[in-house]
Design a protein around this nucleic acid. Sequence first.
DNA 1: TTCTTATTGAAAATAATTTTCAATAAGCAG
DNA 2: CTGCTTATTGAAAATTATTTTCAATAAGAA
Lengths: 145, 145
Amino acid sequence: MDWKVILSQKGYRLSEPRKRVIELLETAEVALSPQQIHQNLQQKDCDIGLVSVYRTLDLLTKLELVTLVYDLQHNPGYMLSTTGHHHHIVCQECHKALEFSGSDDIDQLVERVEAETSFQVRDHFLQLFGLCPDCQLNNDTGDQL
Amino acid sequence: MDWKVILSQKGYRLSEPRKRVIELLETAEVALSPQQIHQNLQQKDCDIGLVSVYRTLDLLTKLELVTLVYDLQHNPGYMLSTTGHHHHIVCQECHKALEFSGSDDIDQLVERVEAETSFQVRDHFLQLFGLCPDCQLNNDTGDQL
DNA sequence: TTCTTATTGAAAATAATTTTCAATAAGCAG
DNA sequence: CTGCTTATTGAAAATTATTTTCAATAAGAA
């Protein structure tokens, strides 16, 4: 089910800022910070206030339509989320982000840690960092290391 | 090797603020934010500036003597790190944090994701959330859910 | 003990986010 | 299609978190 329907069903209006922010996130393959989103919109289209970007992102996060991702320097970035529990891998070069799904290996890990620590695990946050295919190429030909 | 030696060897001075911050982190089993550390020190001992807390944490992080951990609301917390690559599990009740070591299950996961995404994985950030043994007890007897 | 200079603390500067509130516009009812 | 209700917006102010600046201090070598 798409976001327009979800918003409407929950009684939220389909306002201009919301449309623009989501449209932008739909085309972006990189996780964007509130500031980046704001600038991007300023350049492209009309004046959406930074405040509305924050509010839209808050709402969408609450509705689980977008996910908050971090890079290694702990900078926040938002990206559209697909359904289900997912994790992300972020490219250290171009910051492109991709989702991947949790699977047996996570369950296994969780079990091990529960046994080791006596904690009862209820949630987790996992993020991988590395090079996307494109940047692997550019890195090989370009600089050393 | 302990932190006094490490600091000295790298040419850093063993100043009062640094001693106090580290001592506090040594006794704390909960990850603390810069503000919490500052308040804690104010109460206990003499006046350490908040700025020095920030600077000390930056330094210790750079030296990998402390690690930055997040809770589910993305609030930062610092805790002493042991050597090697570790991850953390944080109690959602009392915020107590514990380290656990990466192991085969992580390698397995990394391999799978590399195969799935064609990314080259170079680093990762993993954090688990749940209930520590103490809070499991309190939760069972206490409130429902 | 003296000297050098890394380190400190206070205040100012910067940055990020949240709140406030009057003006606007989304979308239902007529 | 038009008017009405109220969620939503944008600008500015307020708040919060962090960083920078710089003169005063103190760590530790000589």
